[in-house]
């Protein structure tokens, strides 16, 4: 427990992530590279959809990560509210932008896939609509964080709003079961095993792992940036309080 809580110390976190980050980045590059190779040269085209099925290998991992990012934000919000930890706050803040980006990728690729398959870029299907609401939730939370200055108060209010918005996640997950509309039901994470062919499942899983590693790497980098940015802001304030223009540069040195 002591070892675990020491991970939450920002200085320890910065040291550790510096060591972990290259590995995560390499893992992401390797897995995505291998996944893309499998997607384009090994995995077969669908008997019905032809080559457009390959959009799936971007679309599905992006959708998973869009929800994964919200789960990360929710657990970080619990960290903010229960332990009031600044690191949880940084994690919550930075995950919002990444989550919004993955949701956007998911929506765009889905729309491009929908045109040849369903004949339309957009339908007001339950899954699509709940994903769009997730995107709007991310945008609202980003706007909230930008309006609130970097205060513990802003962090807690954003955390509360994150927890309130969590209602959308189960709705997205079960929307294909509750409403029988255009989007197909779950075919990988379902009771009774996946219904997707192994030749397509393996590239999909590898792409998903690569995308997860990418998310983790980007998230860790963003948290590091956030910590450093706050440290710079604090030191600048201290220097300004000391009233020395030249002192600022001196004080900033040890932060690097």
């Amino acid at each position: 427990m002591i070892a675990f809580s020491s991970l939450a110390n920002p200085a320890v976190f910065l040291r550790l992530t510096q060591r972990v980050l290259p590995w995560l980045g390499a893992a992401s590059a390797l897995l995505s590279g291998l996944g893309l190779y499998l997607v384009f040269f090994v995995s077969p085209a669908d008997y019905q959809q032809g080559e457009t099925v390959k959009i799936m290998y971007i679309h599905v991992p992006a959708a998973w990560l869009a929800m994964f990012a919200y789960m990360v934000m929710t657990s970080a919000s619990l960290g903010v509210l229960v332990w009031r930890h600044p690191l949880a706050d940084a994690a919550q803040k930075t995950a919002a932008t990444l989550g919004a980006a993955f949701t956007f990728i998911c929506l765009v690729t889905g729309s491009l896939w929908g045109k040849p398959m369903w004949g339309t870029y957009w339908v007001w299907d339950a899954r699509l609509t709940s994903m769009l609401i997730l995107f709007l939730l991310y945008l609202g939370l980003i706007a909230l964080r930008q309006t609130m200055e970097d205060s513990p108060r802003g962090a807690r209010i954003a955390a509360i709003m994150t927890l309130v918005g969590f209602v959308d996640i189960p709705i997205i997950k079960f929307s294909v079961d509750w409403w029988n509309t255009l989007h197909q039901p779950a075919s990988v994470l379902r009771a009774g095993g996946p219904t997707i062919a192994a030749a397509m499942l393996w590239p999909l899983l590898i792409m998903a792992l690569g995308a997860t590693a990418l998310f983790l790497a980007l998230h860790l980098m963003a948290i590091r940036n956030e910590i450093l940015r706050r440290r710079v802001a604090r030191l600048t304030l201290q220097a300004a309080a000391a009233g020395e223009e030249g002192g600022a540069a001196e004080l900033l040195e040890p932060a690097q």
């Binding site: 609202g140 706007a143 709003m161």
Partner: peptide, 21 residues
């Protein structure tokens, strides 16, 4: 959530409208 913001109305609408769907 937006009580302390001077012009919180727009932000409030952004936060609340998705939840009222």
């Amino acid at each position: 959530a937006t009580v302390t913001l001077r012009r919180g109305g727009l932000l409030m609408a952004l936060l609340v409208l998705p939840l009222t769907i």
